[in-house]
Design a protein around this nucleic acid. Structure first.
Length: 555
RNA sequence: GCGCCUGUAGCUCAGCUGGAUAGAGCAACGGACUUCUAAUCCGUAGGUCGCAGGUUCGAAUCCUGCCAGGCGUGCCA
């Protein structure tokens, strides 16, 4: 629809140009959008205003020229108005909206899907929490955003690979092993001090008990730290298993689990170091190897090999991202916690050093989550191992409410997550508001069936009976769905889906309360309305699917 | 000190990449269930878009300077 109008506009501009009515060959960026105010038409453009300064004419005069030269071979435009300082407002024929309605019924669950001839390949990496402890609500937010974004990108025609990067080597895994080892020793009555910086949680005790049950005291002797590698790999493997279970219960799916350890075993870290050194991106100073990131937009250079000869986390990251592009992705999206934002410039420097375009790498930052209960913050301390896990949150409030609540805000704004509110089955909880609309529609359709009325196909209804302003409003909203999804994909903003669904549900609830779908004395009208609400159901279902939230048929 | 994010109704937040009279939900107040699900709807009230300048036909949105909060600024991950 928007595409057609844009075409119409461009044609009009070319005509004006050919007739010498305007002189600008270059058309500046302009918008064509759905105005907030219904009185301003179905679509509005500011093109005359942006041309005004170039043409040195008044915006309204230019608007006249463009409007007068509009040809509309498809016959979708009802009328064109020039308004305000020089907006051109388009009013679309009802006929065209009814066509949109038909499309929804015909396409069903594939409505809104874009199928390009060549699919771009995009990788989206998210969560990637270290396997040193259970996931918390902050990871959960990153998980839902990543998962939902992947769904959205698939819908608009990308081939998407979802990936989790496992930091299964290095210091923190070593510390994990030592933490479990000390608890293991303590189980045998050996008195030893547990350092503050070690992992404190209850799960460390559980892992120690597990090992004692299976292996008894076999690993108790630890001369020169010989037992630690076992504890490290055992513990990180078990923690990761639990992470996988938690994510699965949360409806988050991954295609690929990428191990950092593999990068070392396949010598990829080594290779990329040699490669970058050869290309002059690395240099030696003070016994360490540095990346010249300050040449590429970062504010200082970064160490990749420390003075003691070990590599930094950053070195693995360089190798990892090189690996991503070698797998042929057109675009790589990383979803990080906002506390990693200082990392972006150096990563962008890496991308540049690899000769990739800036657009090939995008980072989406996800802000922290404040967990509340009844309006009061829940005290958490990672250091003391006292925190509410994602597993506990999902178990308490359920997958649907948890996911929806985490998708309610823009990802770069702080989010308050109230456990009581998310659990409440009431008007305070937006998930139920949308799901209820879906259930209601299903209920009406069931009721219709009892009266031997099935949802008809479009050709069997007289759609012109849908004359109420509320009905036209609903149809327009449904027609806006594909564009909204596209916008959500382009801007990496999954929260747009939740806002759209809330709005659609609101319009439906309002319509429902005012008008009856099934009327005894008018079967033709009943059929039309059944078709309409069925289309609403399709779109709500589609939207909730994108969010990974269920669409119940009854509540 | 420097860098990034945030600041919009009493509270929690949208605002579609600069558009027309700034919008929702909650909380408050008043209404609607013998009728397809009241987990719903209708109505009332609520604003110096942190402050001050600037850019232009036009600014919550862009630029500069302040103010406030959060985060970052490791040869940690």
């Amino acid at each position: 629809m928007k595409k057609q109008l844009t075409e119409i506009l461009h044609n009009s501009l070319s005509t004006c140009l050919a007739d010498g009515l305007i002189s600008s060959k270059e058309i500046p960026l302009f918008f064509l959008e759905i105005p907030k105010d219904k009185g301003h038409g179905d679509f509005a453009t500011n093109i005359a205003m942006v041309l005004a300064s170039l043409e040195k004419k008044s915006p309204r005069a230019i608007a006249e020229l463009i409007a007068n030269n509009i040809q509309d071979p498809g016959g979708i435009v009802e009328r064109v108005e020039i308004a305000g300082p020089g907006f051109i407002n388009f009013f679309i024929k009802t006929e065209h909206w009814l066509d949109c309605l038909q499309t929804i019924g015909e396409q069903g669950s594939s409505y809104g899907r874009i199928n390009p001839e060549i699919k771009k390949r995009v990788q989206i990496e998210f969560v990637s929490a270290n396997p040193t402890g259970p996931l918390h609500i902050g990871h959960g937010r990153g998980a839902v955003i990543g998962d939902t974004l992947a769904n959205i990108l698939e819908t608009v025609g990308y081939e998407v690979v979802r990936e989790y990067y496992i930091n299964d080597t290095g210091n923190q895994i070593n510390t994990l092993g030592k933490s479990v080892f000390i608890r293991y020793q303590q189980l045998f009555g050996i008195k030893c001090k547990f350092p503050d910086e070690y992992y404190q949680g209850e799960y460390i005790f559980e892992l120690a008990r597990e090992i004692r049950e299976t292996y008894d005291d076999h690993y108790l002797k630890n001369e020169g730290g010989e037992s630690i590698p076992f504890f490290s790999s055992y513990a990180s493997r078990r923690v990761l298993e639990n992470i996988k279970l938690d994510l699965k219960a949360f409806g988050v799916r991954f295609d690929n689990w990428f191990s950092e350890k593999d990068l070392f075993e396949n010598k990829e870290v080594q290779k990329v170091i040699e490669d970058f050194t050869a290309k002059g991106h690395f240099y030696r100073k003070d016994g360490a190897l540095w990346f010249k990131s300050s040449d590429l937009g970062d504010d200082k250079d970064r160490v990749v090999i420390k003075g003691d000869g070990t590599t930094t986390y950053f070195a693995s990251d360089i190798a990892y991202h090189k690996n991503k592009y070698e797998r042929g992705f057109d675009q790589v999206i990383d979803i990080w916690g906002a506390d990693h934002h200082g990392y972006i410039p150096r990563m962008k420097a890496v991308i540049q050093a690899m000769g990739k375009k800036q657009e090939a790498f995008r980072v989406l930052l996800v802000q922290l989550v404040n967990l509340l209960r009844g309006g009061k913050p829940i005290a958490m301390s990672t250091r003391e191992g006292k925190y509410v896990t994602l597993h506990e949150v999902v178990a308490e409030v359920g997958k649907d409410a948890a996911r929806y609540s985490l998708l309610l805000r823009r990802s770069d704004s702080h989010l308050d997550f109230d456990l009581e509110l998310a659990k409440e089955k009431s008007e305070n909880n937006p998930v139920y508001y949308v799901q209820y609309a879906h259930a209601r529609i299903c209920s009406i359709i069931r009721e219709a069936k009892k009266q031997h009325l099935e949802v008809p196909s479009f050709k069997n209804i007289d759609a012109h009976l849908l004359t109420l302003p509320e009905e036209l409003e609903l149809i327009k909203q449904l027609a806006a769905f594909p564009g909204m999804v596209k916008g959500s994909a382009d801007s990496l903003e999954p929260h747009r889906i939740t806002f759209f669904l809330n709005q659609l549900a609101s319009k439906f609830h309002s319509y429902y309360n005012k008008h009856r779908v099934i009327s005894q004395d008018n079967q033709a009208l009943s059929c039309c309305r059944l078709y309409l609400i069925s289309a609403i159901r399709i779109v709500i279902n589609k939207g909730l699917n994108l969010l990974g939230v269920g669409s119940p048929a009854s509540m």
